[in-house]
């Protein structure tokens, strides 16, 4: 049985203009020790997905439907007190901006010790010892001194290390990292990512990595989800998706990487921008931007415009696209050639 099982999750935000559907029918699983990447543009619902796992979605957001099972226990209907016992203890989180994540008026030590004391009956001195040990693990220089310092006395990279140490304090089963390196200096990003990967491997912690950096996803994760306008549109083994994406949107994302551009030419891009969640197009949400949804007569395919695509199995991946479904169902031997163009270049990644 999977460690974490999210199925048919619907998350909505009750706004004055009506409900905005932030997540629709999102399902995925995570095994013990597995590393899963969630990618997509800004506003695709990645962060909402991250916060929903711990049922941390703030009002006016709410879980409208679906289930989140962690270690056999249902989280969506769990009482707040029990949920509190799982947060930070079994499942911990790393936030995007380390400058904002630590409380400015409490010392580092205080913020680590309170977390231990919330979950274990432990003496303050022992808690301090554990905190110190974790700071060693994330390679913080002179950790004893750090415990008595305030967040503003440390750099961004250092703070993110401390947040990772906090996430590891209670030896959790899962760490949910919401763009853990986005707010950091480029030079620090790689260090932090490497540290996170190393610690997850060493302690056999499962990782859900939310990011829009495809390079990081391909280096760190074993499986990935691609999200678009609140839906999962493609999921499967990371290597397979990166090397041979099926969904036109995923192809577009990979094509947009600077490595994919011809030197001296403009970078490739997906025309248009992602629709707002309050106003997603009917049918496949991607169809207005999709070059494959136009048929030979230059008109939009009707199924793309009207029917929400369901997942179809292609290789080891699940893809939600009418075009891919046609290709798979026809068992066309040339279906690999249909995504003409970038496939040779993708090998270079």
């Amino acid at each position: 049985m999977a460690l974490l099982e999210v199925s048919n999750l619907d998350v909505r935000f009750a706004l004055r203009q009506g409900d905005v559907k932030a997540l629709r029918d999102v399902s995925f699983t995570l095994d013990r020790g597995e590393r899963l990447g969630i990618v997509g543009e800004s506003g695709a619902g990645k962060s909402v997905a991250a916060f929903t796992i711990l049922n941390l979605i703030a009002k006016p957001g709410y879980i409208a439907d679906g289930s989140i099972r962690f270690d056999g226990r249902e989280l969506t209907t769990m009482k707040p007190r029990q949920l509190q016992q799982i947060r930070g203890n079994k499942v911990s989180m790393i936030f995007q901006d380390p400058m904002m994540t630590l409380n400015p008026v409490l010392t580092i030590g205080e913020q680590m010790i309170e977390c231990l004391k919330a979950h274990r009956r432990i003496r303050r001195r022992d808690a301090r010892e554990i905190a110190l040990n974790k700071l060693h693990q994330v390679y913080i220089p002179s950790p004893e001194r750090r415990l008595d310092q305030y967040p503003h006395e440390l750099s961004g990279g250092m703070r993110q290390r401390i947040i990772i140490a906090i996430a590891l304090l209670l030896d959790p089963d899962v760490i949910v990292a919401d763009e853990p390196t986005t707010a950091l200096d480029v030079t620090i990003q790689a260090e932090i990512m490497e540290l996170l990967l190393e610690l997850c491997e060493k302690h056999n912690v499962a990782l859900i990595l939310i990011t829009h950096d495809l390079g990081v996803v391909s280096q760190v994760t074993q499986r990935m989800l691609v999200m678009y306008a609140g839906r999962v549109i493609e999921q499967g083994p990371t290597r397979e998706i990166i090397n041979d994406a099926e969904h036109p949107y995923t192809q577009g994302l990979i094509n947009a990487l600077p490595q994919m551009a011809t030197p001296g030419q403009r970078l490739n891009q997906i025309p248009g921008s992602m629709p707002s969640l309050a106003n997603t197009p009917p049918g496949c949400a991607f169809h207005p931007r999709c070059s494959f949804s136009v048929d030979a007569n230059g008109e939009r395919r009707r199924d793309c415009r009207e029917v929400i695509p369901t997942f179809v199995r292609s290789g080891n991946c699940d893809v939600a696209c009418h075009m891919v479904r046609e290709l798979v169902e026809r068992h066309s031997p040339e279906h690999d050639a249909s995504d003409n163009g970038p496939s040779e270049k993708r090998e270079a990644l």
Partner: peptide
Amino acid sequence: QSDYVKFAKAKGISMRRIYFVHALKN
């Protein structure tokens, strides 16, 4: 609404402590 209050929630700290230590001090 701040990130550090959300993070404190994600750490599994009691709401009482979040309100009266994390939030009130700030």
